[in-house]
């Protein structure tokens, strides 16, 4: 089982990238599980059409522990197992602690044993802002961390922060840094800037996604690009990125 936690600056396109990677991996016949670790709870929306999914923390909120694994997940495109951690009441509680509680609950209910995924993708909110958001990179969860970034300065800054955090946790047996996915925003010298980042953190670019209107078009259809436009060159880029990740297997 390959378990990857995907981080990156807020709004950089993590959920879209992760969902397309998940779809590409599923097309290859892999059993994929995607877990959204964000109170917005929209990580898997492109994978499950209009199928409603109650977040794990909403289940905890309303039913304490009296709910089943089946209530926590939905099977989406090509049987991708979709789950959303959810979050506390907006403005209250602790989102980071919520991620811990949700992932613990998912494990307690036997999600990994039942679905036996080949690949688990944790789509994590933004930066590693507190202890809760390191949960997906702790032992027992992700083996590798991938960061999605563009060539924008703030995105590169966030990616560098995340890489530093991963490095700091090496003596705790946390996940290893696997590389960067360049999600292009067409800024000047974008490839060079991200390659410089990769060099600085002694890592590499493991995937590159062009900026394209197809992403928006697919979202309007409620689908990933991989599902909506399987023959598009952009789909091939997602497939290549997914394959680069799977090379860790």
């Amino acid at each position: 089982m390959l378990k990857i936690a995907v981080y990156g600056k807020g709004g950089i396109g993590k959920s879209t990238t992760v969902s397309n990677m998940a779809a590409a991996m599923a097309d290859k016949g892999l059993q994929v599980m995607q877990i959204g670790c964000d109170p917005k709870a929209d990580s898997t929306i492109l994978l499950r059409g209009n199928e409603k999914l109650t977040t794990i923390l909403d289940l905890v909120r309303t039913k304490q522990d009296q709910f089943t694994l089946d209530e926590m997940v939905r099977l989406g495109y090509k049987n991708i197992v979709c789950a959303e951690a959810g979050g506390p009441t907006p403005g209250l509680g602790c989102a980071g602690r919520g991620i811990i509680a949700a992932l613990t609950k998912l494990a307690e209910k036997g999600a990994y044993e039942k679905y036996q995924p080949d690949v688990v993708l944790y789509d994590v909110l933004g930066d590693v802002v507190c202890g809760g958001f390191t949960m997906p990179m702790r032992p027992g969860y992700a083996d590798y961390v991938v960061v999605v970034t563009s060539g924008e300065n703030m995105s590169i800054y966030a990616a560098a922060n995340i890489a530093t955090a991963v490095q700091q946790f090496q003596n705790r047996n946390y996940a290893k840094f696997a590389g960067l996915v360049l999600n292009r925003r067409n800024v000047k010298d974008e490839t060079a800037k991200v390659q410089q980042l990769a060099d600085d953190i002694e890592s590499k670019i493991i995937g590159s996604i062009d900026r394209s209107d197809l992403i928006q078009s697919a979202e309007e259809l409620g689908k990933t690009v991989v599902e909506a436009f399987p023959e598009a060159p952009l789909t091939q880029q997602y497939r290549n990125t997914g394959r680069s990740n799977c090379d860790q297997l």
Binding site: C94, G96, R97, G131, G132, T134, F169, N171, R172, Y174
Partner: peptide
Amino acid sequence: PMVIGTDFPALALE
């Protein structure tokens, strides 16, 4: 520590 997500098995390792 529970609320701030302290990872005791990791600290034990250190």
